[in-house]
Design a protein around this nucleic acid. Structure first.
Lengths: 225, 225
DNA sequence: ACCACTAATATTGTCGACAATATTGAAGAT
DNA sequence: ATCTTCAATATTGTCGACAATATTAGTGGT
């Protein structure tokens, strides 16, 4: 059940990982307070390590902390959501560009497999869109890894993607862009495979921009009702 | 002397700020060990708050921490330096694009003033390039603020720019691109002023790319000797 | 002289108690 | 009835001591 690797030596590391997962999945609801005493008791540890874990959560932006008041799980406004999309457009565009230059053949093959899996999920139509979205994130994840840029990897895979997952739980949006997104993914991999960084970046940016515009439409609908 | 605002309520916040400044300016040398006991004694505080401060430093990537071993100030490899440049190219390009759409007239005026100041420093030729570089960073800082994208602002102004300052101290490079950079800055502001986001992004990316290529040349020279 | 193993030391990790601050509730005044 | 003030309570911030782990020094063996 727990996705947190056991080799995390120290208590703060483990608790941080568990809390992050709980927040991202919504088990700790957005806006709710993080009580040190409660959680320390729940996990059977002292407040010291717990505080360090909370500090880490604050550092990656999953909770907001105020001195002498405590920490609360963030609530993503639509403004912040669009901010994230713009950051992703910039960073993942660059990731695709660098992946086109640096990605090993084996990594590209893995990318193709992810794509096939994604296509299978769509055609099955059993269509729990959750798995589709999970597959979508796997795709982006693999490309970022393929960029070989350690800082890019940290920013996206270790920080921003958790926020993306949080938003998907929080807003509960089912995209319906599945087939279109898959086609875009294919074109991106093609560009990467032939080493065309310029085109890979353009396509990745267009892909994320389309996704953002889709979200903007859904937000507008929601606001109208 | 201290740049850390006094309104930082809690001890970890203050210590974090002070340590960050000390690291960025090289008073705590790259690669040196951060001893909890020593620093706690130096600052006259307990180890608890100090540990939180160190955790924050690790979170922004200024120190590396290993369980049961301790924290060391990072040493930037040229690889990591180039990684940072690629990230900056992507993020600041996007910042310029959004600044062209969102920047208030007063902010643009401030940008012009920064530019004039920068020009004055160059013509004076008294040319302590440190101040030039400081002015350069002010320029980039102001544009990012003008983007209005909170996440972009945090990533660049609160995290990445400290690494940039660290590298400038660590590598001690004096750019000599002053005049060229100034001209590029002017063109970027022009594009922002007329609301041309596309052009502002292109120019900003070209500007940072030129800076990176300059650094690559200097690294190659250094490696040759 | 060099290596392996062990003991001594130093450093980090964790805990429980106390201090400082914020929040809550009740009492009193207008 | 509403607002203000102030005390009671709860929560966070800080500290010093102890436990666990890594590093170092020393000893013995080959």
């Amino acid at each position: 059940m727990s996705v947190c690797p056991d080799q995390l030596k120290t208590i703060p590391e483990r608790i941080f990982c568990q809390l992050r997962e709980a927040i991202v999945e919504g088990r700790i609801p957005a806006g709710s307070k993080i009580s040190e005493a409660d959680l320390a008791h729940t996990y059977g540890i002292s407040r010291g390590p717990l505080r360090e874990a909370i500090s880490q959560l604050a550092a990656v932006g999953l909770v907001e902390r105020r001195a002498n008041v405590g920490a609360r799980v963030i609530e993503l406004s639509s403004r912040q959501l669009l901010d994230i999309f713009h950051v992703r457009e910039a960073l993942e565009g660059m990731a695709a560009r660098q992946a086109a230059h640096n990605m090993a053949p084996e990594q590209i093959a893995e990318l193709r497999r992810t794509l096939e899996e994604h296509g299978r999920q769509i055609s099955e139509e059993a269509g729990n869109t959750y798995f589709q979205q999970s597959g979508d994130l796997d795709f982006h994840y693999t490309i970022v890894q393929g960029s070989g840029n350690q800082r890019l990897i940290k920013l996206l895979c270790h920080d921003l993607y958790y926020l993306v997952r949080l938003y998907r739980y929080q807003f509960g949006m089912r995209s319906k862009r599945g087939p279109a997104a898959l086609a875009e993914h294919r074109h991106i991999v093609d560009a990467i495979e032939r080493g065309d960084g310029e085109m890979a970046e353009l396509l990745m940016r267009a892909h994320i921009r389309a996704s953002r515009e889709n979200v903007e439409r859904m937000l507008a609908e929601k606001a109208a009702s």
